[in-house]
Design a protein around this nucleic acid. Sequence first.
DNA 1: GGCGTATGGTGGACGGTGTCCACATAATTC
DNA 2: GAATTATGTGGACACCGTCCACCATACGCC
Lengths: 210, 210
Amino acid sequence: MIAAPHPPSRRRPAGQVRSALIAAGLELAQAGGPDAVVLREATRRVGVVPNAAYRHFADRDALLAEVCVAAMDQLAGRMLEQVAAVPGGGDAKQAAIARLGALGVAYLDFATQETGLFETAFAVPRHLEYAGDTADGHRPTPFQLLGRGLDELVTAGVLPAERRPDAEYPVWSSVHGMAVLITQGPLRGVPGQFARQLTDQLLAFIARGV
Amino acid sequence: MIAAPHPPSRRRPAGQVRSALIAAGLELAQAGGPDAVVLREATRRVGVVPNAAYRHFADRDALLAEVCVAAMDQLAGRMLEQVAAVPGGGDAKQAAIARLGALGVAYLDFATQETGLFETAFAVPRHLEYAGDTADGHRPTPFQLLGRGLDELVTAGVLPAERRPDAEYPVWSSVHGMAVLITQGPLRGVPGQFARQLTDQLLAFIARGV
DNA sequence: GGCGTATGGTGGACGGTGTCCACATAATTC
DNA sequence: GAATTATGTGGACACCGTCCACCATACGCC
């Protein structure tokens, strides 16, 4: 046996393995949702032995939780992009409405195009807390973006100020509910054309209800 | 070794093991959601060896799928109860609105009180189809109940007939979204009082938007 | 009525997973 | 330079879903 007595046993720069594990977990989540982020596979991709993960995370759920906030951050990024792409000029009321609509469409597009990540973003393990809004280094949360959109609606004079408080919740519920029903629920697999019709219908519904 | 050469190896009446497995799975789902319905534990509760399950289900997902329709059926049952409990007399318009509201409240109550079952009802395995509406022997689906509620709204003159088509979807999305956000999503753990306020606000939102 | 055959149970095994323990090394601190 | 801490390794355990080979019963058919 001429086996090397101890394989180099190299050690990566501080924090590198940790973030690499999160990145690997994100890949797995993208491909297969939260259940697919399996600790051993993540370590395999990073090129490290399974137990090494326990130097950086208490357990698999702790890793998953980090992946979840990363996924949520990606959703927020997509929403930011889309709202920035809305042409600005013209009527202020129309613009505010268009920007809010862009947020909703981005939300739904992300859910259908990146179903794994979308599912993961909301799959924070049961006993763990959802990270408070906008942890350091991250974008504003989708919830905050929605709040800004509604504020714009008020300043543009579209939404009466007295109806602004807590208006986030029904709007968020509507969009989130449709996203869930289409991507994971009984409405999954409906043809894209019908899904788009549902989206338009939903936006009109929200505009009347808010 | 005086071991009995072959333990009785008894055989249950036809179909009994199958339904017992579903019932056991339902218990597991109630306590811990879809991930908790684990094949081996179900067989253990039924008092049978793990492999016996494979005589009745192709695999664990097939068992889970059956548990899902049972859970959905329970949700429908709760909705039926609640809508039947709405006092009938008085203004037809008010009555129709009250009955639709009762459906929504029942949906949300079920989600908060039976979170495991609620989660399971919508956790049909990816590659399997959602059972078409109202399989034999089951109650009407929640979706059908919602449709009836909206029909009542039309006949009572509350909802213009031209807005009836496909009105299920935005309404369903709103209620379902809130249920998901409160029970599994970022809103979980909010105090019950706030949750109730959100529910009222949501119903008003729906009434305006529909 | 005897008998073959499908039906539904058993036992044992395999690979995969999360997690724990004991150990070994590299980096950091005094 | 020594002691301590942080990080990676190796090996093990229990649990899970699933497959294979075997066996006992119930049932239809001649």
